[in-house]
Nucleic acid binder design. Structure first.
Lengths: 128, 128
DNA sequence: CTTTCTGCAAACGATTTGCAGCAGC
DNA sequence: GCTGCTGCAAATCGTTTGCAGAAAG
């Protein structure tokens, strides 16, 4: 099982690269052109396994964005009213405190942290 | 539209109160006894609107836990291998740094933060 | 009685999958 | 040719909803 970088896959990656926030499937279908829904889903799975895209699950639907290795580590603003998700760059002080906080938890639980997610949940400018 | 605290609703709350992690629906059905699936869903919506339970959306299904006002603020360990979710109490130093980090973001974006989520993503003891 | 709750079964919507044809190597 | 990719339509699965009866006030 080896995989190709087909034009379709490239198109999906480019659509995601052009966005400043995670995209839901209908958005990918619109922005990319002439993509079949099922193929997009299939390709997103492939790309996810390849570590190229990352899936974010929200209440209504999944959203997809390029993996952090490609976009830089960041966090999300999530609007509870309209469902908007926006990227914000990670603050370095915060990352450091998080690293400090993680260690004792790992020791206590045997959990091995690979990455983390920090989401700020509230209302966006438009929904205030 | 006013609502009652029926035995069924109480049963759901008690099941959630007895767990140390967010539960998926099948788990609630097993632990609670004689509950109909649709009624549990409906009651969870009611309880969610009442601010008693909180819904967490994962890749496979929704999970539910008591609201933080009742359980204390905490974060989650999420295992990417088996889907397990476990609660961890929030570290106070971390909360403080997060508060510091949030302010400039709010100023820059006009976003109003109501709450936040911090998830540690990795592998649990059993899946290591 | 009127309103809310319940269970059942049917409906729904996002995602997945089976299949047959096409394209890359 | 063999293997992987694609689109279409059908299937799947968690969740929601319509309905008629039961329970609460």
């Amino acid at each position: 099982m080896q995989q190709r970088l087909t034009p379709k896959r490239l198109a999906i990656v480019e659509v995601l690269a052009g966005a400043s926030r995670p995209l839901a499937l209908p958005e990918i279908l619109e922005l990319g052109d002439g993509l079949a829904q099922s193929s997009v889903y299939r390709n997103l799975v492939v790309l996810e396994r390849a570590g190229v895209v990352h899936r974010i699950v929200t209440a209504e639907a999944s959203r997809f964005e390029l993996a952090e290795e490609l976009t830089g580590h960041h966090h999300h603003l999530i609007c509870t009213s309209c469902g908007m998700v926006e990227d914000v760059p990670a603050a370095s002080g915060l990352e450091a405190s998080l690293a400090d906080a993680v260690t004792p938890v790992e020791d206590a639980t045997g959990f091995r942290t690979k990455t983390h997610r920090i989401d700020l949940v509230g209302l966006c400018k438009n929904c205030l």
